[in-house]
Write a protein that binds this DNA or RNA. Structure first.
Lengths: 340, 340
DNA sequence: ATTAGCACTCCTCTTAGTTGAGTGCTAACA
DNA sequence: TGTTAGCACTCAACTAAGAGGAGTGCTAAT
């Protein structure tokens, strides 16, 4: 167990390092007003903290730098909630000033504001389209053998996909099919459409139209690989400001990661609420060893969730980011549930 | 006017520099098999070429490096067309192997292959949606005061926008209006919809429904700010490989530029066909002073165009890129006009 | 007109020395 | 016994000087 003095010193060191990005020495610490003991004492304590694994040295005669374990302890035990500057709060509120109707717009703006306020990179996940429910299904023929299927969801999201039409489908048949589809699919979540098509709709189609098999098959392939939730970025190049990312290779790795949808999705905790922090090597993605990721979720309507991630160096201003995410999460949730 | 020997030397220097990124000296040139004269002679010629502005030195006793004027001369007069490796051609053809129905998919894949083959960054512009023509217009109400307007175009593209519904619009009124809209708008290019709405449709609406004004107004604002042509990127971080971009700030500028739609659009020549090359400071965009941009266009259907840009260092392999773009442009044009 | 030879330039790399921030340890002190 | 002053030691960062080498420009010979 750490003594109070050790806790205090650890806190001061991490707070200082987060600001300066420089190894912090005993003399520097002793100058802080809240520190009443001498550099020598501090050196002894630091040696102990290092032995316990909370601090590291970059070389034998350098100041101390927090280790991952140090950061972990810091965020778990030393992170007193921070009040946020009212100017910042105002800026967040400004997202909702101009009555943006579309969810996308709000999220896009949120991403930018978050990256501005943190000076890190933000990634926001929009609502999980797979869980939207069908509001209307329509089919618009384009040529003799192709048509576009359009699904409007309860949230006003529109999915569309071109698919190939079996030969010799008449207009009246098509109309009939669209009617059946609407009867059967309204209220069904997108992720279940293809099951529903095969389980129920196929049988009905077979009674009414020719080439039902092919038709359903076409529709199933068209609706199967439906889009995942959309990804919005803010401040993609903000990490260039951080001294720890002055290395081109690191930056490249992270930028490449952000171009890959599956990798981006892997940054988020599956469905858990609250704020999650992953520090350094706790991130398993290639090239994220020097990053910390703070994630949280927000609600959209009744049963849908979006997610927020902030990516920064391990030397991230955890306190500030956590506070900002807390506000953002609440504001977004409020904005999106009030409405629908 | 340059002598033949000067032309030959200029060509060799640029070809060599494009490959090596190192200033090239007289001895190095004299070793090439096609060069029959001595280093001293070459030095004299180089001094002349420098005086004429085609070459530069990085310092008094360094080898020569092409100047922008040198590159310009090179691409204008020394760029013999290059046959492309059959393996590369094959890879380009592979885009069209698997019958991708959707234009977007083809373009996305093209962007990736282009950046792979060139090892530069590629940007592709999809068709100019504004010039698509309305195939079907429909409106799906979401709540009492909002609805989503959906426009399917002749190419199977789907535009949709949420707009606010005037109070007290009945379902039958809505149906009536959609019918009128379809009668009047089918075949109209998206860019002209709002004009048409105000000029023709408004008058008709006024005869049939209440609150026609508001309704049209809502629709106009919804269709006014329609999406520009979609942008597809390939190899965004490829520039990290180029030694001239080992400077974080340069890279950052370019990456930031690529995040800004208007900036990206400014990279493209307005509508001119053929292949265009802008070298170094011929690019007016901030941070593009060390880049060259090669652009061209391809056709989609009868009257629509997409565009391709390759961004690399001024020390770009112009010959190869031009040859690749030529092929790509033709293949895309062919693929997209055959179909529709 | 071409080229060999040579002095000169200037980048790059290495080595050595200096400085300064910071540590660990010992001994003195309250 | 916990705290602190003092001091020797370490090591990164900076500076200066020198060696090596690639390349040039000029002159004179071919």
């Amino acid at each position: 167990m750490l003594t109070n003095r050790q806790l205090q010193i650890l806190q001061v060191i991490i707070d200082d390092f987060i600001l300066s990005a420089q190894p912090v020495g005993s003399r520097q610490i002793s100058k802080k007003t809240e520190i009443t003991f001498s550099p020598a004492t501090i050196r002894n304590e630091m040696a102990d903290l290092e032995e316990l694994g909370f601090l590291e040295k970059t070389h034998t005669s350098s100041g101390r730098v927090p280790s991952e374990k140090g950061y972990r302890f810091y965020v778990d035990h030393l992170l007193s909630p921070q009040g946020i500057n009212s100017r910042d709060v105002q800026q967040i509120q400004s997202i909702f000033n101009d009555r943006l109707v579309e969810v996308e717009q709000v999220i896009r703006k949120s991403a930018n504001i978050l990256s501005d306020l943190t000076s890190y990179t933000s990634i926001l996940l929009g609502p999980d389209v797979q869980r939207h429910r069908v509001k209307r299904f329509s089919i618009v023929p384009l040529s003799t053998d192709t048509a576009v299927a359009i699904i409007v969801t309860n949230n006003g999201h529109v999915e569309n996909r071109i698919f190939s039409l079996p030969p010799n489908v008449t207009a009246s048949e098509l109309e009939k099919m669209v009617n059946i589809l609407n009867e059967r699919l309204i209220g069904v979540p997108l992720e279940e459409i293809h099951k529903k098509l095969e389980a129920e709709v196929l049988a009905i189609f077979q009674q009414h139209v020719q080439s039902a098999d092919e038709f359903i098959h076409s529709l199933v392939t068209a609706t199967m690989h439906n889009s995942e939730s959309k990804i919005f970025y803010g401040g993609k190049t903000n990490m260039f400001n951080q001294p720890e990312f002055h290395d081109l290779n690191k930056v490249r790795m992270i930028l490449d990661l952000m171009e890959t949808k599956s990798q981006v999705h892997s940054l988020f905790q599956p469905n858990e609420s609250g704020i999650h922090i992953r520090i350094g090597s706790e991130n398993k993605q290639l090239g994220m060893g020097d990053c910390s990721v703070i994630t949280t979720t927000y609600s959209i309507g009744e049963d849908q969730q979006g997610a927020i991630a902030i990516i920064g160096p391990t030397r991230m201003d955890y306190r500030r980011v956590v506070a900002l995410l807390e506000i953002m999460r609440m504001d977004l949730t409020q904005a999106f549930t009030k409405k629908s």
